[in-house]
Design a protein around this nucleic acid. Structure first.
Lengths: 172, 172
DNA sequence: ACAGCCATGTAACTTGTTACATGATTTT
DNA sequence: AAAATCATGTAACAAGTTACATGGCTGT
């Protein structure tokens, strides 16, 4: 959540309500629900951490809104997030957001991100295969390693589809 | 962690130190490290929740150990965990542990678990494809859905390998 | 009049995570 | 004498999650 909200703010300042909508749109139909409270909790924690700043904006015929923007530290953190090549649990969703954050903000090149990530996954794949060699065949450990391996391969194939997607977009 | 520790205790009562070792062995070389503190924290929280009970055991020439065992509520919870077909972030590792917990404890049939899980994933796959139909082709949303789909397919293939594994084991 | 959108948040709880502290015993 | 193993935990923070509370405006 933390990094995701930050990356949305990297595109443009926004208030909580808007962020929630953008996020749900970004995650699409597969994203599921998102408790509004979560967004506000995250924002206040980010503020406490000095990564965002709020400014109250009065509106004529609507409740006031609190528009948040990144601080320098926040922007730095987003940039590091974009460059981070860790493939965590929530991988595909998070990477998807990362890609579009890169495209929207110009803080990083999407195609380069995909490539870096692909290389990282391939490295992990090689490492898995090395481990598998040391494991007795048909053992429980080997089974688990195969699962990880199949998943990584699927993810690599997805990254290739992503690359295609962005190359086509660039050529337009 | 919670459910994992519980499932290890479902096999047999154990103390924290032992649980940590078992867990690291179960996760194999891909599992990485595990801070000992984590285990003890989890155990004390489980105790507070009334899912496990401890009894101190004195040892002649070693520090005393605290052997934990499941309560009725704990055992009930493990059983529900085994039956739960949710495919969360940490999916493969967790499912792997679930499978072996089932095999070790006799609280559930591994082959049946794999089958239930496979059916669930196939259901999710169908659902994804329906969503994809409503999404414009080559859109950002479609890309994300494809990623999810590729992953699910890989996971299904892994489940088939698991099934194979356990069928062979049973026939021995 | 009532539903639904706009807009905000807090309190409380759970879980993960780590750094640190302690101390005996066995092996090298 | 040093290092590894056995064995336990605490304090503190970070993060996710949800239930609840508030209130005005807009459209039917």
């Amino acid at each position: 959540m933390r990094d995701v909200i930050l990356s949305l703010l990297a595109k443009e300042p926004a208030h909580g309500y808007e962020l929630r909508q953008r996020l749900m749109r970004a995650l699409g139909p597969a994203g599921g629900e998102l408790n509004p409270g979560q967004v506000y909790v995250t924002l206040s924690r980010l503020e406490r951490a000095g990564l965002v700043e709020a400014s109250e904006v009065a509106q004529p015929s609507y409740p006031d809104k609190k528009v948040y923007d990144l601080t320098a530290a926040g922007r730095e953190r987003v940039t590091r997030w974009l460059a981070d090549v860790t493939w965590s649990k929530v991988a595909p969703l998070e990477f998807h957001l990362k890609l579009f954050a890169a495209a929207d903000t110009g803080l990083a090149d999407p195609v380069a991100l995909v490539d870096a990530q692909r290389l990282e996954l391939l490295r992990e794949l090689r490492q898995l295969q090395e481990l598998a060699l040391r494991e007795p065949p048909d053992s429980d450990g080997a089974l688990l390693l195969e699962g990880a391996s199949l998943r990584l391969q699927a993810d690599v194939r997805w990254l290739e589809a992503c690359q295609q997607h962005f190359l086509e977009r660039e050529s337009r």
